[in-house]
Computed example of a mutant assay.
Amino acid sequence: MATIQSIPRPTRQRPARPVRPARPALRLVDTRELARADWLQVRRSGIGSSDAAAAVGLSPYKSPLVLWLEKTGRDADLQRPDPLDTREPVYWGTLLEPIVAAAYTQQTGHRVRRLHAVLQHPSVPFMLANLDREVLGVPGVQVLECKTAGEFGARLWRAGVPEYVQLQVQHQLAVTGRQAADVAVLLCGQQLEVHRIERDEALIAHLIELEGRFWAYVQKDEPPPADGSASAQAALRCLYPRSSGQTLDWRQDRAMSALFCDLQAVRGRLAEDSACEARIKQQIQQAMGQASRARFESGEVSWRRSQDSRGLDTQRLLAEQPDLLVRFPKTQPGRRRFVIHD
């Protein structure tokens, strides 16, 4: 497997030491009769394989800050998909996991079995893993990871196994000491692909190092830095939902004042870029006239009128029947607004 280049490497050039368990992974908890609340509590005690990419800042779905909220028990107010909602991908992923595993056996001939346990690395206690399946009797592979991807998610698989899944699997191999895993992914409900991922000792060593840095934030009860993602923004709203009315004086704080100057500079560049984008777009629209689509050497644009839509004129309705507001009230929870005053 190719090395994941975006994971920071140590500045000093030194050979990476293999981080392989001297003995098999520990069976931390049997999950066959474990209540969901207890299972969630076990997950808070360490970094699971599905947490690996988020812990090192490479998950497209979850920031380190959200993961920190989960591990420290501050995630009660976070919005998350309902695993029982049939409109959510997580529901279909859980429902289809055994089907993907059965299809993998049919396609490859490799027998698999469930492992009803949370596993723990024998020498790195914060590293946990839940395996979808074990592969039996095949010298070249011992772990099976089952995935499903819809129309949007399938795009992430065009170049092979996405980075965040590779990290998940390397985490599993680190915990178990196994040498390889197969990733079986069902694309758009009708195409099964199987990808082999070999153990990468250098990557595992760096993964453990970076996960250790994240876990230190959990142990210190100190939030990791926000990374600019929508996930991190949601975490900040959850962590600091209300303002105290206090005013902080950072005029003599060079670091914070420099940070604010950087924000002003970026906003200035964004305003210039936005104006430039609007001008160029209008020039293309003007050249198109009444045409609906234009093709270029590197792509194309469309300029069409959307269908008329019908809505309810609530302002007029309330003006004529003001009692409706009393009979059918709806409160929208307020949010803190970040406003810049130059």
Rank of each mutant, 00 (worst) to 15 (best):
T3F: 07
P10V: 07
Q13M: 09
R14Y: 03
R17H: 12
P18A: 15
V19C: 10
V19A: 11
P21K: 15
A22H: 08
R23S: 14
T31C: 05
R32D: 06
L34P: 00
A35I: 03
A35G: 09
A37T: 04
R43E: 10
R44Y: 10
R44L: 12
I47P: 02
G48I: 06
A52E: 04
A55Y: 02
L58N: 10
P64C: 13
L67D: 03
L69P: 00
A76R: 14
P81D: 13
L84H: 12
L84A: 15
T86S: 07
P89V: 04
Y91G: 01
G93F: 15
E97S: 13
I99S: 12
Y104E: 01
Y104R: 03
G109M: 07
H110C: 13
A117I: 07
V118D: 03
L119M: 11
L119S: 06
P122C: 00
V124Y: 09
V124P: 01
P125C: 01
L128P: 00
N130Q: 14
L131D: 05
D132G: 07
E134N: 11
P139C: 04
A149W: 06
G150N: 09
L156Q: 11
W157N: 01
P162Q: 02
Q168T: 13
V175M: 03
V175S: 02
T176D: 07
A181K: 09
V183Y: 10
V194P: 02
E198D: 13
E198N: 07
D200N: 11
D200P: 01
E201H: 11
L203P: 08
L207P: 06
I208Y: 04
E209D: 14
F214L: 02
W215G: 01
Y217P: 01
D221H: 09
A226H: 12
A235Y: 08
P241N: 15
Q246P: 01
S257R: 13
D262C: 15
L263D: 12
V266W: 11
G268L: 02
R269Y: 06
C276A: 09
A278N: 09
K281Q: 14
I284V: 15
A287F: 05
M288D: 03
S292N: 08
R293F: 10
R293G: 03
S298D: 03
W303C: 02
R304T: 12
Q307W: 11
D308R: 14
D308A: 15
D308K: 12
T314N: 13
Q315A: 15
L318S: 11
F328N: 12
K330T: 06
K330R: 13
T331F: 12
